[in-house]
């Protein structure tokens, strides 16, 4: 009887079996990587805003404090975005006729707020609160990166749950003295043994709750 398959198909068959293992592992790896990539998380993506507002100008060059604009960051869940009047405090006088500021002036005339595009947006089922973090010595730059260097705001962290938990499990690796919270130059993470030891003493000093409380599901999924 003639052979249905040529002899070479034997090798091909073996190759597919072994190959399948590698292909499966590779696919899994690609899926895991894509899941964490900025394509999925929106990390590093610079969002074009209705006004070309630059933190680099205002914070880096002019040294304006975060709280001047994000007024509720120490007291509320949301940091809040500045009202048009806040901008106009200065821009009535300086750069008062810059074309870049036209949308701001129009908003001021009409009373219609500027519609900023959200950069960070947690899903609604996750609860986040700025005030607790800021008051327990977690600096803006730990989560938001060096905002003072950003001409256009972008998301510096993945905002995925593993990122939150990475800190909630070991807060001593991140906390800093409270007075340094708004300091963009301060280290974002405690790396050396001394820094971690300081972090540990701050955890005690600020009465930061133990990881079993901070990582319990209902802390963030209320």
């Amino acid at each position: 009887m003639p052979q249905i398959f040529h002899h070479s198909t034997n090798a091909l068959a073996k190759l597919t079996i072994y190959g399948a293992v590698f292909i499966l592992v590779a696919l899994l790896w690609i899926a895991v990587e894509l899941n964490r990539s900025s394509w999925n998380t929106g990390q590093w993506v610079e969002r074009q805003q209705p006004v070309q507002f630059s933190h680099k100008h205002h914070v880096g060059d002019d040294g304006i404090d975060c709280r001047y604009c994000h007024t509720s960051v120490e007291t509320a869940a949301s940091a809040g975005l500045p009202a048009t009047t806040t901008c106009m405090n200065c821009h009535k006088q300086i750069w008062a006729d810059s074309s870049y500021l036209e949308p701001v002036r129009e908003s001021f005339r009409t009373g219609k707020p500027i519609e900023w595009i959200r950069v960070h947006d947690l899903p609604d089922f996750a609860y986040f609160n700025h005030s607790i973090h800021v008051n327990k010595g977690v600096g803006c730059s730990t989560c938001h990166g060096q905002v003072d260097q950003m001409p256009i705001a972008y998301q510096a962290s993945t905002l995925q749950m593993e990122w939150c938990l990475g800190c909630h499990r070991n807060p001593e690796n991140f906390v800093r003295p409270k007075e340094k919270v708004f300091d963009m130059q301060f280290r974002q993470e405690n790396k050396t043994n001394d820094e971690i030891a300081e972090g540990r003493s701050l955890v005690t000093k600020y009465h930061i709750q133990p990881p079993n409380v901070l990582t319990s599901c209902s802390t963030c999924h209320r």
Partner: peptide
């Protein structure tokens, strides 16, 4: 159990 982004 796979290395997920939820970290659990």
């Amino acid at each position: 159990p796979y290395p997920n982004t939820m970290g659990i």
